[in-house]
Amino acid sequence: MFSEFKPFIINTSKIKINLIKGGQGFPVLLLHGYPQTHIIWHKIAPKLAENFTVIVTDLRGYGDSDKPPGNPEHSHYSKRIMAQDQVEVMTQLGYNQFYLIGHDRGARVAHRLTLDYPDKVKKIVLLDIAPTYEMYTLTDQEFATAYYHWFFLIQPFPFPETLIKQNPDYFLTHCLQSWSKNDFTFTFTSAAIQEYLRCFRDPKTIHGTCEDYRASATIDLEHDQADIEQKIQCPLLVLWGKQGIIERKYNVLDSWKKRAINVQGKPINCGHFLPEEAPEETYQSIRDFL
C-alpha cells in the first residue's frame, strides 16, 4: 500500500513512534483516528507524495507505536503529550515547520499541536470533527446515540477493555461498518482491514485507545477550558462527511471560526472515513488548499 515509502521508528523523549516517509517537497504530517492506524492514508498519501514529503505516523497507543499504560490523571494520553510526540518526530526528521492533516482522533491531536506549537504549523486540515470542547458541552441524546463509544470507552479501567477484548475483531469491524456510509468492501481494502485487526487485537492497543478517550473527557477538557480564547493562527481547512453526525449536528464552519482566524471548508459526500470512503475528492480538496 505504501510501496514508495520507507519505514522508520523514532525515539522521542518518552516513547517510540512508528512511521513511514515518502515523496519530496515541503513536509506534510498525516495523523489517523480511531480505531485505525496510519494505514487509513494509503489511498491519499502516495498522491500527496508526488508534490510533498509525506510523513505518516501511528499515534501513541495505536498501530506499532508504543502504548504506555494509563495513569489516574490520563495524562499519558492527553492530546498535549500526543502532540509533543509528533513535534519531536518532525524535529528529529529535520522539519521545523510543516503542513498538518488529521482525521478523527488525529485531528484532535492536530488541533492541540497547532495551539501549543503555532510556529510549527504552516497550514492545517481537520477531517470530520467539531471542537472537542463544544461536542462535550453540547451533548444531547442524538450525539450520545451516534457517538456512544465516547461514553463507553471513558468508563473506568478495566470495564471497556474487558468487554472489547472478548471479541476485538467484531468491535473494530462494527465501528468501521456503522460509521461509514459507502460500500464496506469498496471503502476498506482487505489489506487495510487485516492491518487494523492485527493492531487492534493487541490488549495494549485496546487499553491505550481507551485512555485516549478518557483523556479527552478529563485532562483535555481542562486544557481546552484554560485556553478557550486561543485561536489557530495558520490557515485551516475543515472537511467533514455529509452523511455523518458532524453534518447533522453542527454548523462546522461556524464552530471552527470560533477557534481559528482563517477558516474554509465543505462537506464531502460520504460518512466518517473521508480518506477511505471518498479519497479522490478528499485528496483534491487538500491538494488545492496546500
Rank of each mutant, 00 (worst) to 15 (best):
P158Y: 13
D212P: 03
L236N: 03
V87Y: 15
T53F: 10
E276L: 03
A191R: 08
P168H: 13
T218M: 01
D128G: 01
Q177D: 04
D85R: 07
Y34G: 00
G208Q: 09
N269E: 05
N51Q: 12
C199S: 12
F188K: 02
T57R: 15
T185G: 01
F200T: 02
T91M: 12
R201Y: 04
L172C: 01
V252I: 03
F26S: 11
C210S: 06
A226R: 10
G94V: 10
Y136V: 13
E142H: 14
Q92A: 12
F152G: 04
I228N: 09
W150M: 03
L239Q: 05
L176N: 09
L239S: 06
K47G: 04
R80P: 03
L237E: 06
Q97W: 09
N96P: 02
D128P: 00
E195F: 14
F151S: 04
S178M: 07
H32P: 02
R80C: 01
V109F: 03
L236Y: 02
D227A: 11
Y62D: 05
I10W: 11
Y148T: 03
S178G: 02
G33S: 06
L100M: 09
F98C: 11
E73Y: 09
A192L: 02
L197S: 11
G208I: 03
H111S: 06
P279E: 10
C175Q: 15
P203W: 12
K165D: 13
F184D: 06
F52W: 04
T205C: 07
I17Q: 12
F289K: 01
L113G: 13
F143K: 04
L197E: 13
T57Q: 15
G63H: 00
D58S: 07
K120E: 09
W179C: 01
Y213E: 03
Y213F: 14
F98L: 08
I154L: 00
M135L: 05
I193Y: 00
F8T: 05
G265N: 12
D104T: 08
P279V: 10
P72D: 08
Y133V: 00
D202G: 15
E229H: 12
F52V: 06
S3N: 14
P7N: 09
K47E: 02
E211S: 14
F157K: 09
G208A: 10
Y213M: 06
K120W: 09
R112H: 15
T145Y: 02
E134H: 14
H74R: 03
Y117G: 01
D66H: 14
E229L: 12
G22T: 08
H149V: 14
N182A: 04
S285W: 13
F186D: 12
